[in-house]
Design a protein around this nucleic acid. Structure first.
Lengths: 106, 106
DNA sequence: GTCTACATGTAGACCGCCTACATAAGGAGA
DNA sequence: TCTCCTTATGTAGGCGGTCTACATGTAGAC
């Protein structure tokens, strides 16, 4: 399906995956695909910049986990991130309600 | 709420409003606001270019309704527009299902 | 005669995401 | 050990839909 429907929702989705606990980028990407039944898949060129934006915004905190030589940056939600996620979920409800009443699906 | 959530959905919303019958741009805009309970409102700089894109794509057909001196371009769905709208509705269901399973709302 | 609502449109810029590319380590199999 | 796939992260440049700001004109109310 059209991938561009997800525009504007990536950061919310990332926060939601991290709600279950710390994860690194690649794992987040895989979990997005699994949880969505294979519908959601973001290219790395979208994923990693988005994680950096969230970190810069103080919504997640990243840490280089140095397990052997392999580089892995593990992220976890901050308090601000949890608040933003909660607000995003409310926005989502409003959003779908509005669209579905226009589409006559509600 | 964040207006940018609606990115990528404008054209579908426009088709949905026209499903009820022909309308001109300004009326479409108002009906979007009413049907969505005031949540949805697009500036004219978004609305009119979008209508032209839909017309160029053959999904709607426009006609200058010359009622007195006032200029009004009335649009109606084409057969292709109806097909696209139906497909968009299906996409919407998939989209919300995917997002809600990630957000743990489903 | 002025103000608000009606009605449509263009120009330019913004910005989130995509495409394409770049890098490198770990593990499996030949 | 050589190769290949998976794991893992990232940058550069561009696209495109939307927004902001501006521009234009009519109809009706007060």
């Amino acid at each position: 399906m059209r991938q561009d429907l997800f525009r504007g929702h990536l950061e919310t989705l990332l926060l939601a995956v991290l709600e279950d606990g710390p994860r690194h980028g690649y794992a987040i990407s895989q979990e997005l695909a699994v949880r969505s039944g294979g519908v959601l898949s973001y290219p790395t060129g979208s994923l990693y910049p988005a994680l950096r934006r969230l970190e810069t915004a103080g919504l997640i905190q990243g840490d280089w986990a140095g397990d052997s030589g392999r580089q892995r940056r593990t992220y976890e939600l901050t308090a601000a991130g949890r608040r933003t996620l909660a607000a995003d979920k409310q926005d989502w409800q409003q959003f779908t309600t509005a669209v579905e009443s226009v589409l006559r699906l509600a």
